[in-house]
Design a protein around this nucleic acid. Structure first.
Lengths: 183, 183
DNA sequence: GTCTATAAATAGATAGAC
DNA sequence: GTCTATCTATTTATAGAC
């Protein structure tokens, strides 16, 4: 065989993920190929275009986030699960900011593969336990909005050197106390 | 005069704003120059580089948002001002999404010119009236996080065809009821 | 499946004449 | 202040040989 396979889809995704997390702008087909020790055109045998590769990364990211959240909240009682979930969510956004950004930029219901749906269902169930309403979409939307906004603004440096000064905790407590509950 | 001035900084900013709001990716120096009926290099007599131009746009955007919010909330009592503010904020993000995105991407305390500070102070005062704590930074951070997150996710299409289903209202009520208040 | 060569497009920015 | 000409750098993607 004159040209035996030098890589495979999984490895490509793995290295792409490393590049992305290092610096989103470094994820180019050229750059990726170089890291894999192949030439850029070869990548197109594995992924139709860059978009396809990014969607695969989003799927991976959604799964990673889901697992992180599940691990953090499982076995805990509702109230503790709520805080653990939120903490883990923000931590994920902090530690893997480029992956998180790609994820939230490309994860729409249309894009939503299994991981995206699992993620949404997990938030929905957790929050519904808090409000004691099955499938409390409105509360889940509100809660996710808060977490996402906080994660984004914290990273943007909007809150300055002094930091967000307890904004996360205050917001979480407000939701816990203020969300309308059945019964 | 062989080469009389064909434009000025204000006009450049005006047209740049139009381009941006039409489509963020259409805001290139070339494109901008064409719309102004000059050649691209001439722009560098007015702005040192693209970054400088964008910062000027951020300043404009922050001022526009501030005016919108102030107009919406002024003369109203605390509770009504709170809802009017939130509604106006989300409406701004909806109607001028590209400007809003640039704004929130580049508006950090380091960047913060007068408009940015006015914006933050306005949020801070409003929310401090709700919680009855002077300079309640934590509550302001939480509130702004929620609004920003909601605006972003709504635009991203994350909530799907069915829409956010009352998530905004539920979140606002939760804050109003759940934020810790003095006295 | 890998390669070389190249297309095709884009961008920001500078030099120097007028 | 405006212009022409150009530099420099980047990207995604395809054609076709091996």
């Amino acid at each position: 065989m004159p040209y035996p396979a030098k890589t495979n889809s999984e490895e490509i995704l793995q290295v792409a993920l490393e590049l992305l997390e290092q610096d989103a702008s470094s994820l180019s087909m050229r750059n990726l190929a170089e890291r894999l020790d192949i030439k850029a055109p070869s990548l197109y045998k594995y992924f139709a275009d860059k978009e396809a590769l990014e969607l695969a990364l989003v799927e991976e990211g959604a799964l990673a986030l889901y697992r992180t959240l599940e691990k953090a909240a499982q076995t805990l009682k509702t109230r503790e699960a709520f805080f653990a979930f939120a903490r883990a969510y923000i931590e994920f956004a902090r530690e893997r900011p480029e992956l998180y950004t790609l994820l939230m930029t490309k994860l729409t219901p249309a894009t939503q593969d299994s991981s995206g749906k699992m993620l949404w269902n997990f938030v929905l169930k957790l929050i519904s336990k808090i409000t004691r309403k099955p499938d409390d979409t409105a509360a889940a939307v509100a809660f996710w909005s808060f977490l996402h906004g906080y994660g984004v603004l914290e990273r943007s440096g909007m809150f300055g050197e002094s930091g967000p000064k307890g904004g996360l905790e205050v917001g979480l407590e407000a939701f816990l106390k203020g969300l309308p509950k059945s019964r």
